[in-house]
């Protein structure tokens, strides 16, 4: 039986039994883990306020090495964040949680992803998140997790992407020019505006994401591209993306 002491981000919680919670934590030192917090749903529990999504905690949990489910021993918040003050903040938070849930494998240590998540949470808390933070975070998350789509040139021929009939192919993992469409599987039209935005997000500091202006059509197009890329490459649906339009 080992005891693990590390800083963690709460990624998700699921009700378990009468009063327990099954908590998914993205830990700084041990990657993504699941742990049971006994009695966490009882109002007078010492845990009750702590397992709010994207809260950063100092956590102590225990269990056998390489086991799939741990037990929480104690928690202590690093800083109290407020992400529930507006609908935009909350739905952006849901997207960030889903990116962390989908892009991080159990027990996979990913410090750049952890830092990215912290940066995103700080931005949400400060209220400077801008309308495109969820999309920027998703793209940066894909890049950090090793699922970055190829956007520089045509993924099939390496040709220039200056034509007006560009397509995005999730199965090939990038953009195709008009000449390379045969045998590319399912593909979607991608506009030059959307492509430029996706390229820009990869090298962009999240703090500057609010500087990029996207109209509603471009936002929807970008959301669709990210949705299909994740669905094909990770086999998971980014269900929270459609909520950004509410």
């Amino acid at each position: 039986m080992a005891l693990y002491d590390t800083e963690s981000i709460v990624v998700n919680t699921i009700d378990l039994g009468e009063a327990d919670l099954l908590v998914t934590l993205f830990t700084r030192e041990y990657g993504k883990i699941k742990a049971v917090a006994r009695g966490a749903r009882i109002l007078k529990s010492r845990y009750s306020g702590f397992f709010q999504p994207l809260l950063v905690l100092n956590t102590l949990y225990f269990g056998n090495e390489r086991q799939e489910l741990y037990r929480m021993a104690s928690i202590d918040p690093v800083k109290v964040y407020d992400i529930s003050s507006s609908m935009d903040k909350m739905f952006t938070a849901f997207c960030m949680m889903e990116v962390l849930e989908h892009c991080c494998g159990p027990g996979e240590i990913n410090l750049p992803m952890y830092r990215l998540a912290l940066e995103g949470i700080e931005l949400l808390d400060s209220g400077d998140q801008g309308p495109n933070l969820a999309l920027c975070f998703a793209m940066r998350g894909l890049s950090v997790a090793g699922y970055m789509p190829h956007l520089k040139d045509c993924i099939a021929c390496g040709g220039d992407l200056s034509g007006d009939k560009l397509r995005f192919s999730p199965s090939r993992g990038g953009v195709l020019c008009n000449r390379c469409l045969s045998g590319a599987g399912e593909h979607f039209p991608i506009s030059m505006g959307c492509l430029k935005f996706l390229v820009a997000t990869l090298g962009l500091d999240l703090k500057r994401s609010s500087r990029i202006k996207l109209n509603q059509n471009l936002k929807e197009e970008t959301g669709n591209i990210i949705f299909n890329h994740i669905a094909y490459n990770l086999g998971r649906e980014m269900k929270s993306l459609r909520f950004l339009e509410l």
Binding site: R46, Y47, S48, G49, F50, Q52, L55, P77, V80, D82
Partner: peptide
Amino acid sequence: FADEVTLARSFQ
């Protein structure tokens, strides 16, 4: 004995 999150909310 109040946790920090609940206490912050009660101040808000």
